[in-house]
Amino acid sequence: MIIDVNTYIGSWAFRRIKHNDAAGLSKFLKEAGIDKAVVSCVNSILYKDTQEGNLQLMEEIMGYEDYFIPFAIINPRYPGWKKDFIYCIEILGMKGLELYPYYHDYNLTDDFAVELIDLAADMKVPVHLPCAVENLRQRHWLDTTENLSIDAVERVLAICKTADFIITNGPTDVYANRLKSVSASRSGRVYYDFARVDVFNPGFESLVEAAGVDNVVFGSVAPFQYVDTQLVKLHYAKLDDDDKEKIGHKNLENLLGL
């Protein structure tokens, strides 16, 4: 069984994305062998008001509630963020928070961001931090030139000690090694995917060693990227079947209480 921690519905301004509605994405993922998926609305990244995307997501996945696990994208710089976030979790039943400081022009350690992350921890939902949406080198000339800042993540982990984080779609082997020390000093967990780490390079083993196999999860970035690229990594990972089960679904089930 595989649960995917990082998928999107919605349109991307800079490139045509196929399989990007609930019906198309669920079909695409199921055909690839994905049994459940965390999903957010990519439109929220570029909408001024992220809540429009969150509401769009919930409308879109109606009828697919057993398959998709919705996460809310919130911009804590925008007025009304607290009300929106509470509404997403308490009323809409969304299961996590997703942040894009490099699109929404703030730092994770800004007071309002810390307040939001602490609120997520109080509400027992994890904070998903994708390192990027698309690879930096290929971005449209109007796209952001920033990625997630590892320095900012390190600082916010030290400040928000009880929040659970999921870091995806970036050099997570580097992240896991750099954040190992600060992670040990906090009660919240830090999870990593391996979307940008090659299983045939030392990076994958380094990631698993630094993070611990209980803190590695599966993320595909579908429908932006091929799912098989990630399934191949899990297939060829030099891990026993129990550890592959943890990475494939059990770690995320534990985190999300599935």
């Binding site: 090659d198 299983v199 045939f200 390079n201 091929y226 799912v227 098989d228 690229t229 191949v232 060829y236």
Partner: peptide
């Protein structure tokens, strides 16, 4: 080119 598993995976997924 140094990305072996992605290289294999995109051929399978295409």
């Amino acid at each position: 080119d140094g990305s072996y598993s992605p290289g294999v995976g995109k051929m399978l997924g295409a």
